[in-house]
Design a protein around this nucleic acid. Structure first.
Length: 580
DNA sequence: GCCGTTTTCGGCCCGACTGTTTTCAGTCG
């Protein structure tokens, strides 16, 4: 899609304009770039169908940007952008990543020292050329050194699922402190973003000094950046930073709203405040000097004339309008989930063990502890030899084992059932690696791509379409194949996949494994818009992984999914009915 | 450059902190 390419260009144009001291235009370009990054329709398609006029229908796109898009689609470049680059031949995006330097400093550094990229900058600080510059100084130079150092060792953002257990531990430790009256995590963790930069925790404390001391001395803490009565910053042993912010009781709601973000959502809410003659900040909503709201988030939204917006929706992507009109979805919740259908019973370390029955019983017990009504065993199949995939014979044997365990549970009077499925392989030609007469005997069939992931768009689309058209295939696992920070999505026509899923009633998986989260929020929203049913599965390879469910639910919520969109909120009878 | 239940022109989010200044610009979240 040209969307991403254009988004990148518009972000860079915004940076260049900012360096050039142009005001307001950067804001306009960034807004469009942000929108295009995740825009559901291909701009090339929009232009083909409706020309410039259609482009201007896109929110944030006016005459100027529409012409820019047209020029790029026709010639592959935008003259305005090329001119800016020629005027200031810098690696802007690279330099902006250095903490402490922004557009203005970049311009000075280029004009006075000819610094064009990180390499030049590193050389300049080593030669102590920065400090003597007008408007700079010793401290600034030192900060740049630190910024460069951090950039070098910074491995990028952390996976939500990797940091969440630690965050919960810290919150629980803090909750036990008597002087803490209110506590919540904020930031992108609260919005359930798939990757996280750092953590913000908000508290109301009756004894800030005591709370601060307790926090910086937690066993998870490796290094303390700052300790104060309103803010403490630490780095954890795991490598990410946590800020504890202590706020006043009467501002807790507005502070939580502010620190939860997103930034774009905050800007939008503040603009609404302005139209009502009010001012919204992290301290509250003010009419003149008088605070009229701020104790709870609900108050903040209500005073703005909005219904309460769940944190997962706060991306300025339509939620404000929906809240104004009372059209917000009632999002699916973890407690709505009645079972998990993607569980492997052959954990890596026990791949060749003979106690299959015991392993399945353990998974079932874990699911019972989670108050599920059912669990589905879905091991890999024979094409994946390295994963000890089951062949037809193995699947039938497993079927008997599961039946036995179910009988045992029944005798014990436990109202819980183990369903039997598999995660079969979609081969290159779209066929399934297990015979249909065996697939038919299973309660359900998941099919997924596990090989030849780099095939071309048409081939891959045809391959998955053919699998969905197999009447025995109920669910497509991790539909796009992406691995966060590791691997891109398959090349495929996702719109086409969605259409065929709708036609065939195929369920698309929301895979809750932290590095997958596939479908992600964006694609979930596209699928929902088409009326496609989804299922949230953990793809667990050991029983502890069943707890990944919360991250899948988080993505579903980011994708505006409601209970009715997710089939594992159904009772087992209705679920099996659906598969039929 | 975009946009309009305040405007087709005149606006465009808010506050804290830092480091450089001597009242403030730049950066960050």
């Amino acid at each position: 899609m040209k969307n991403q390419e254009l988004a990148k260009i518009f972000f860079e144009i915004a940076d260049y304009l900012e360096i050039d001291g142009v005001s307001f235009k950067p804001y306009a370009y960034r807004k469009v770039a942000l929108l295009l990054e995740n825009y559901k329709e291909d701009v090339a398609e929009i232009y083909r169908n409706g020309g410039l006029k259609a482009l201007e229908e896109i929110p944030g796109v006016g005459e100027g940007i529409a012409k820019g898009i047209e020029e790029y689609l026709k010639t592959g470049r935008i003259k305005h952008f090329e001119d800016l680059k020629n005027k200031l031949p810098l690696k802007v995006d690279e330099l902006l990543k250095v903490e402490g330097i922004g557009p203005k400093k970049i311009k000075t550094l280029y004009q006075k020292l000819g610094i064009k990229d990180l390499k030049d900058l590193t050389k300049a600080v080593k030669a102590h050329k920065i400090a003597p510059l007008f408007g700079f100084g010793e401290k600034t130079e030192k900060n740049i050194v630190q910024g460069l150092e951090f950039l070098k060792q910074n491995k990028g953002r952390f996976l939500l699922g990797d940091i969440m257990p630690t965050v919960k531990e810290i919150i629980n430790s803090l909750k036990k402190q008597k002087e803490i009256k209110e506590i919540s995590v904020a930031g992108s963790v609260r919005r359930q973003k798939e990757t996280i930069g750092d953590i913000d925790i908000l508290v109301v404390s009756e004894n800030s000094k005591k709370t601060a001391d307790f926090f910086v001395n937690l066993p998870e803490v490796k290094k303390v950046w700052a300790e104060g009565l309103t803010k403490c910053s630490v780095r954890l042993k795991m490598g990410f930073d946590v800020d504890l912010r202590m706020v006043k009781k009467e501002s807790f709601g507005s502070a939580l709203q502010y620190f939860t973000g997103s930034k774009e959502h905050n800007i939008a809410t503040r603009k609404i405040a302005i139209t009502k003659g009010l001012k919204l900040s992290e301290y509250g909503i003010f009419k003149g000097n008088k605070q009229i709201a701020g104790k709870t988030e609900e108050d903040v939204y209500n005073v703005l004339g909005l219904s309460y917006i769940a944190p997962e929706l706060r991306e300025d992507d339509g939620e404000i309008k929906a809240a104004l009109n009372g059209f917000l979805p009632i999002l699916v919740e973890l407690k709505d989930i009645k079972g998990d259908l993607h569980c492997h019973s052959k954990p890596d370390e026990a791949r060749h063990s003979n106690n299959a029955e015991k392993l399945i019983e353990e998974i079932a017990q874990k699911a019972i502890d989670l108050e599920y009504e059912y669990i589905g065993i879905s091991d890999h199949t024979k094409f994946l030899k390295i994963d000890d995939g089951l062949d037809e014979k193995g699947l039938l044997k497993q079927h008997e084992i599961i039946e036995e365990i179910n009988n045992k549970l029944k005798k014990q009077g436990i109202k819980f059932i183990i369903l039997h499925g598999c995660e079969a392989n979609i081969l290159n030609d779209g066929s399934i690696d297990i015979k249909d007469e065996v697939l038919e005997k299973l309660d359900y069939v998941i099919a997924g791509v596990h090989s030849s992931m780099k095939m071309g768009q048409k081939e891959m689309t045809d391959r998955i379409v053919k699998a969905m058209q197999n009447p025995n295939v109920d669910i497509i696992s991790h539909p796009t194949g992406r691995l966060i920070n590791e691997r891109e999505e398959y090349q495929m026509d996702f719109e086409k996949i969605l259409e065929v899923a709708k036609e065939t009633g195929t369920v698309l998986e929301i895979n809750a494994t932290p590095k997958r989260l596939d479908l992600n929020g964006f694609n979930i929203r596209r699928a929902k818009a088409k009326g496609i049913k989804m299922i949230i599965n953990t793809d667990s390879h050991q029983k502890e992984h069943l707890s990944f469910m919360e991250y899948g639910v988080g993505q579903a919520r980011r994708g505006w999914a409601e209970k009715g969109d997710i089939i594992n909120t159904l009772s087992v009878e209705k679920l099996l009915d659906y598969f039929k």
